[in-house]
Design a binder for these strands. Sequence first.
DNA 1: CTAATTTTTGACCCACAGTTCAAGAATCAC
DNA 2: GTGATTCTTGAACTGTGGGTCAAAAATTAG
Lengths: 191, 191
Amino acid sequence: MGRPKSFEPDVVVARAMETFWTKGYAGTSPADLAEATGVAKGSLYHSFGSKRELFAKALELYGRTGTAATEEFLSRPGTARERIRAHFARLVDADLDGPVRRGCLAQNTVEELGGRDEEATRAVHRIEERMIELFAARIEQGQRDGDVDRGIDAKAQALLLQTTLAGLRVMARTFDRPVLHRIIDTAVAGL
Amino acid sequence: MGRPKSFEPDVVVARAMETFWTKGYAGTSPADLAEATGVAKGSLYHSFGSKRELFAKALELYGRTGTAATEEFLSRPGTARERIRAHFARLVDADLDGPVRRGCLAQNTVEELGGRDEEATRAVHRIEERMIELFAARIEQGQRDGDVDRGIDAKAQALLLQTTLAGLRVMARTFDRPVLHRIIDTAVAGL
DNA sequence: CTAATTTTTGACCCACAGTTCAAGAATCAC
DNA sequence: GTGATTCTTGAACTGTGGGTCAAAAATTAG
């Protein structure tokens, strides 16, 4: 009983995620969140407790949707190299095509809050570990399919790929599309 | 004539740089800067105009010292691969050895202010371009010395190295030393 | 209908961020 | 010394950030 919620919590978290992604954690004020979600400040605090807690939900959602999308995308038909190149290009292009280059929320989080927020750091670490597992699995798949050299160390390559991707999303802040695609080509040539 | 300055502007900029580096742009208050530099708030404003202008000077100093150190370090005796590996390891280790992992100021800047601050973005871009030139030059040196395959595209490899380094500094927020060194080994194996 | 329960909301609060300023202190020219 | 000039400093100001709250609005149980 009691008055029913007038909004879908998942939708509010999704909108909050977009806002944090675009403006950063510190750069997002409660007023911004109220405007972005269409829910009054007081109501947000009633439902989520604090800006920090809402952010935690937003980051969790980001991790879930990001890993799911990566898994789906890597599993489409093609060689490991083709799929990984397409995945990298997709992320870079999406960033460049948006109204503002906002990079990766997980990465932004750890760069902004790194050191000062243990929980956020661990949350990002979990996302990264998951991504690395997905890369390693795809490389091993490629080795079984015969399109990746059996001699390479899948786990080591997966770590390097995650590093390269993180670097690409930094480079996407300041470099243009042709340069970024050239980097992707060079990176996947090593597979 | 007039009352002489009671502080060395360069020293103040250097201390401000350290503070911005550790706490981020938004996370650094005028009070923080006054405490870190030992100069009263009002005096800082008198000398530097605004927080933003002081930050610009700090970022410029960061770029100058960083590129100079890179140039010096890459030119020491050894093969291109050895020197680049050592350079990467040095940066990662310095970050891990500090009291707080703070990454790269240029990168932090572009991730925090990206899109919202044109001038800062351009300043970081200039630093990155300079680093890429240094990498390319060292690779070409290696090709002349015979320790790097003549067939590789120095510019393309330099772009990838800068990307890898940016990624490493992100990874250094959440991974431990052995993993990071393993990534460095995998990365330079491609040279 | 009333009571109990849960949400909603804007008004309100305190602290601090970023900046300005007025008054004083140190120097040089004369 | 006096004046002109430049630097120093804490006090003061304005805006906003993050958060609380009391009162009103929906709902269900009985």
